[in-house]
Design a binder for these strands. Structure first.
Length: 876
RNA sequence: GCCCCUGUGGCGGAACUGGUAGACGCGACCGACUCAAAAUCGGUUUCCGCAAGGAGUGCUGGUUCGAUUCCGGCCAGGGGCACCA
């Protein structure tokens, strides 16, 4: 017999054990059903799972369980993004080994994830710090190197002088290292780069085809790649002013239409010409030094004043050599973009205008906005960057900016400087190559050996993996691999001379750029992927994760997949066909009188509503209720999933995470919300008991005639079924939850309305059908409760093994419908008509209504709009 | 500065391609059960109004028989990029 209350703490482990022993979620690669790959971004093993994980994995699990019921061969794996700095920081702080710390965290978090009852195929689990994984990453690095997709070059990096390591841009806060607090220096270091820029155009263009990605993410990537069409323009140096053997200066411009407005040239402080001039010009050298010292943080750049140094060199204007322009070294020109040289057109570029005003350079209007009089239109402190008519531009005058652009482009292409044309069309990208070298221990070793004789030598594939040594120390700053006594000393694979290993390791983002491919066959030892498996499973049909990865991880993965294709490890370009970015879990913050943050577990809410108050549990002292913010350790506004699962059960946590807020938006974690979810768990359990008492036996035949109540019950079930199908497909889980509530409400109401005499014979069949559907609808979201209810309804097998119910679309169509009747757009009455009634009939029925005649107040009817099955609008 | 998104009851939110605004949940209030409380069940809950009725989706214009939905302008909040030529 059913007990009164549903006991999640007993039921959940029980069903998890049943699923596991029956291998419900084990996925086979040789299954012939259509595939469906659903993946949530794998976690970093930071210690414990947080509510963000719960939300992310609850969503993915709904999709996985739903698709499984719909007959797909579902791949839903889990693993660990296990390399990275926190492990090394923990090692330094706690004198543990990063591996010890990492694997302990994985064990904890695996247990937590298992307690959520996720339908994961744990057989495919791996951690990226395992040699059996990173071995293949090293292999692909070598393949990329052979394919020309890896570069070794010097680059400016953020160098923390105290920790003696490179920092990522995100790790530099206000110009200081986030850990050490030391002022970060810019250093030229030789680094390994993955040539993501090789695919810049394709990564840009292919965004159009990612129609199941959020527009926001595509836009962010498009901006990040930063494609711009322009021209490389070669300016001849004025021989009278140029240093010996310097004859030309090339700049990149997207606004060659404004060339007649040019009043100066500007080059980057570290432009080759500037460096050369500085050799004989100490003042210039000092200026360059000042520029370099200028902060590199964004805040510094934002506020930096435009500074320039007139080199005395002049260039000849490309459209009229008799005009010469001064060449400035300017702090706002970047060597890393274009050619490190620009021509300045102050009237039509804000930076150039600021610069020109400061140094008294001419400002010539060459584009006049539509409808403005050029003689009256003056440039003040704001440049005009829009389109318009050309003025002050000789042969271009009167043209549109577009036409002028083409005209200039053709002229420059057909004019020569030396033996080459002056201008060449060029598409430039903002995207830079991906620097993957990290001076850290806890990462994938870069499989390279440096030999004095042979230079850079790849580690032979047969020697992979290059594994990390275990005996390392973290008591000193810097890279433990570099100061390890023996690890880096090896013989050159070519000449056998003493050589040394590369001691840099790869950025952790490399590991997360292909894990989704490895999941398709994580056991294969001789290659990163099995081509049949990877090409069969990919692309991921539905990828779910946080918006914070909109650029880095998602762009790197798109690049990596292309590089894997180029080197034969995969057969496609785009790894993720569908992407969903879920919102964060946020919570109120609480502060004690002394200003310290207080955790939700330490307080009590004293009064609800407008005069909501909180006090400290321990002392009763008042606590200030603060703003709602992302759950974070620093603000202490976190709720531990273990506590919630221990108190209410995983299903309650899952249900709450799916309800209320649309999944792409932030969800506010509230105690009331959890209580509400928990209440529904109990209510569904009671309702199941009541349905079970009325429901006909499994497999009963439908009665020969059906009462209105019975029909209504079945209609409600099928309506909910149809809506939930639609909404799960579109990941609108909050609406799925609402549909379940509606069905449960309808069934409760029907039970309340039936008399004892009605039961069994008349309603039994309807309640059997509707009850079974209700539980199957709940199953993807609250799987444990659903199993318990399914069994209570008399089923011997698991609801997790049931095929999805077949919706009866004919059943839900009503024969008689009620339409609103509006008069001049305001609703005044309802009219009930046959669903297929002709418009004329509907119109007549509507006009015959007393309420309509009253509302018309004798005015003549001018027009009647009848929208079939929707509305009637009377225009008077 | 540039680009993008969002704005609906006390709260989270719903409303299909322009067709009954407020589904569903939370909170609140009233009632039933109870000695009492919890739990549960029933009811009310956009605002103004006793009612009839009127107003209402950030503000403001427009298109339309009809606008939360489409268009223009403005306001507020959030996010991304940031000297990218």
């Amino acid at each position: 017999m059913m007990s009164e209350r549903y006991n999640a703490r007993e039921a959940e482990p029980k069903w998890q054990a049943v699923w596991e022993s029956r291998e419900l979620f084990r996925t086979r690669n040789d299954d012939t059903r259509p595939k469906y790959y659903v993946l949530e971004m794998f976690p970093y093993p930071s210690g414990r799972i947080h509510m963000g994980h719960v939300r992310n994995y609850a969503m993915g699990d709904v999709v996985a369980r739903y698709k499984r019921a719909r007959g797909f061969n579902v791949l839903h794996p889990m693993g660990w993004d296990a390399f990275g700095m926190p492990a090394e920081n923990a090692a330094m702080a706690n004198r543990t080994h990063p591996a010890t710390w990492t694997y302990a965290n994985i064990a904890t978090m695996r247990g937590q994830l298992k307690s959520m009852g996720l339908s994961l195929d744990w057989h495919r689990e791996f951690a990226t710090c395992e040699p059996r994984y990173y071995k293949h990453q090293q292999r692909m690095f070598l393949d990329f190197l052979a394919a020309g997709l890896v570069d070794r070059k010097t680059a400016k990096v953020n160098w923390d002088p105290e920790d003696q390591t490179v920092l990522a841009n995100e790790q530099v806060i206000d110009g200081r290292g986030w850990r050490s607090g030391a002022l970060v220096e810019q250093r030229e270091l030789t680094q390994w780069f993955l040539r993501i820029t090789h695919y810049a155009q394709d990564l840009h263009d292919a965004l159009d085809g990612l129609d199941r990605w959020p527009e926001k993410v595509r836009l962010m990537q498009r901006n990040w790649i930063g494609r711009s069409e322009g021209m490389l323009v070669r300016f001849g140096l004025d021989p009278a002013t140029a240093p010996a053997d310097e004859t030309e200066l090339t700049c990149f411009s997207t606004r060659i239409d404004t060339l007649f407005g040019a009043s100066f040239m500007a080059i980057a402080p570290d432009h080759p010409l500037a460096l050369k001039l500085a050799e004989t010009d100490p003042a210039l050298a000092r200026f360059q030094e000042d520029c370099r010292r200028g902060g590199t943080s964004e805040a510094d750049i934002e506020t930096a004043e435009k500074l320039g140094y007139d080199t005395g060199v002049r260039v000849q204007h490309v459209l009229d050599p008799s005009i010469t322009l001064p060449v400035f070294v300017a702090n706002f020109v970047l060597m890393g973009y274009g050619t490190g040289a620009v021509f300045g057109c102050p009237a039509h570029d804000q930076r150039d205008l600021d610069f020109a005003r400061k140094y008294g350079l001419p400002v010539t209007l060459v584009v006049c906005p539509q409808g403005q009089d050029p003689s009256a239109f003056a440039i003040g402190t704001t440049a005009y960057v829009g389109e318009g008519r050309m003025v002050n531009s000789r042969f271009l005058d009167g043209m549109s900016t577009d036409d002028a652009w083409e005209d200039v482009a053709r002229r420059l292409e057909t004019t020569s400087l030396g033996t080459e044309p002056v201008g060449r069309r060029k598409v430039n990208f903002r995207l830079r190559d991906w620097g993957v070298s990290r001076q850290r221990y806890w990462g994938c070793p870069i499989p390279i050996i440096h030999c004095e004789v042979c230079g850079v030598v790849p580690v032979p594939v047969a020697d992979l993996p290059v594994t990390l040594p275990d005996d390392v120390t973290f008591d000193l700053p810097g890279n433990p691999l570099d100061r390890h006594p023996t690890w880096k000393h090896v013989a050159c694979p070519h000449c056998a001379a003493p050589a040394r290993r590369e001691t840099d390791t790869m950025d952790t983002f490399v590991a997360s750029s292909w894990y989704f491919a490895r999941f398709t066959d994580p056991w294969r030892e001789d290659a990163p992927t099995d081509r049949a498996a990877v090409d069969g499973w990919l692309p991921v049909d539905q990828y779910i994760g946080g918006i914070e990865h909109a650029i880095l991880h998602l762009l790197y993965s798109r690049f990596f997949t292309r590089a894997m294709k180029a080197t034969g490890h995969a057969g496609l370009d785009e790894p993720f066909a569908g992407l969903f970015t879920q919102g964060m879990v946020v919570h109120e913050t609480y502060r004690a009188a002394d200003g310290t943050w207080v955790s939700p577990a330490e307080i009590r809410i004293e009064a609800e509503g407008a005069d909501r108050k909180a006090t400290l549990l321990s002392t009763g002292a008042p606590v200030e209720i603060g703003s709602i913010e992302k759950m974070s350790k620093s603000k202490r506004n976190t709720v531990d999933p273990d506590d919630i699962i221990g108190t209410f059960g995983a299903d309650t946590a899952r249900w709450f995470m799916l309800s209320d807020s649309p999944p792409e938006r932030d969800v506010i974690w509230t105690e009331e919300g959890v209580q509400g979810a928990s209440r529904f768990v109990q209510r569904l359990w009671r309702l199941t008991g009541e349905i079970g008492r009325i429901a006909a036996p499994i497999g009963s035949t439908p009665p020969s005639s059906e009462t209105d109540v019975a029909l209504a019950i079945r209609k409600a079930a099928h309506r909910a079924l149809i809506r939930i199908e639609e909404d799960v497909e579109r990941l609108r889980f909050n609406r799925c939850v609402a549909h379940v509530y509606e069905l449960a409400n309808a069934l409760s109401a029907a039970i309340g309305a039936v008399t004892d005499a009605d039961r069994q014979d008349e309603l039994g069949f309807a309640f059997r059908e509707a009850g079974d559907i209700l539980i199957q609808l709940v199953a993807p979201m609250m799987p444990h409760l659903a199993e318990e209810c399914w069994a209570a309804l008399g089923h011997a097998d698991l609801v997790g093994l049931q095929p999805w119910p077949v919706a009866d679309r004919v059943l839900v169509v009503e024969d008689v419908i009620t339409l609103p009747v509006q008069i001049n757009g305001k609703k005044r009455a309802d009219v009930t008509v046959a669903r297929n009634a002709p418009a004329a009939e509907v119109e007549a029925a509507a006009l015959a209504l007393d309420a309509v005649q009253r509302a018309l107040e004798g005015r003549p009817v001018r027009k009647v709009v009848v929208v079939p099955q929707r509305i009637v609008n009377v225009v008077a």
